[in-house]
């Protein structure tokens, strides 16, 4: 546990000294500020537009950060061969991987908190109130970021950063469109293809589980059972992906 913490701390340090994160933070902030401009161009409840755009920005830039630092920081250790020195120390491979993952998760938590607080402050400034739903939505965005980080780590254990980023991005996109399959399943008659689609939907990630945007923006009810299943879904999916990553990483040759 101590050693996992040491690796996590070093990963956190490396991430916060990376300039690319500040660039992403800047763009996220700019998008949140621009939501006001969009709200002026639309009819209807302006605050709702701002909420909508702001939460979308949190989710999008959060995912981007997770994928970017997830793939780059793991691959860098292998590519720059810093892992040679690390693994020659009293450190298990699984400890290295979990430490890396934990450090990334903490980094993302800090970044997302910054963005969320900034967003809430902006909403206050524009006449909205303190809104607990913003923080709840952010929490589920965080769950998604953690899952994406695990995916990025998994792909980085065996491929190049570009490929790993592409794979992770595909995971992100598929995850947000897979729910479309459910509509399709409802439309086609029972039979072989319907069963096939059902199985496909079960295998594919469903990241819409973490999307509380509509409910948060329009003040719709958020059933506790649904919140709990979504959280459990994220947790177990993350554990599953991490287990795969550990299995691949355990037997890998570093040459």
């Amino acid at each position: 546990m101590r050693r996992i913490g040491v690796i996590a701390l070093n990963t956190f340090r490396e991430a916060v000294r990376d300039r690319i994160l500040y660039l992403l933070l800047f763009f996220a902030g700019a998008t949140i500020l621009l939501s006001r401009l969009l709200s002026l161009l639309t009819v209807g409840d302006r605050l709702k537009v701002i909420m909508d755009v702001g939460l979308a920005a949190l989710s999008f830039f959060g995912a981007l950060m997770a994928i970017l630092i997830g793939t780059s920081l793991v691959h860098k250790e292998i590519d720059k061969k810093t892992i040679y020195t690390l693994l020659s120390k009293p450190l298990r491979r699984i400890e290295f991987l979990l430490g890396k993952f934990l450090g990334l998760a903490v980094t993302l938590l800090v970044l997302l908190s910054l963005m969320t607080v900034f967003f809430q402050a902006y909403v206050l400034l524009l006449g909205g109130g303190m809104n607990g739903r913003i923080f709840l939505a952010a929490l589920y965005i965080f769950l998604e970021m953690v899952l994406l980080t695990a995916v990025a780590v998994l792909f980085s254990t065996f491929s190049t950063p570009i490929l790993a980023s592409l794979f992770s991005l595909s995971f992100f996109l598929i995850g947000h469109f897979s729910r479309g399959l459910l509509t399709l399943i409802r439309k086609i008659p029972a039979g072989f293809s319907r069963t096939g689609l059902r199985i496909l939907y079960l295998i594919l990630p469903d990241l819409e589980n973490f999307n509380l945007k509509t409910e948060a923006v329009h003040g719709l009810p958020l059933p506790a059972a649904w919140l709990l299943t979504s959280a459990a879904y994220g947790l177990f999916y993350t554990l599953f992906i991490l287990t795969l990553a550990v299995i691949i990483f355990r037997r890998r040759d570093f040459t």
Partner: peptide, 29 residues
Amino acid sequence: RQRLGYLPESPYFYDHLTAFEFLDFTARL
């Protein structure tokens, strides 16, 4: 491993750390 020291071929270490921070990180392990 606890009793072993290893210097790899053409070593390369973290860009983001100073020499002191790097050694401190190693010693923590």
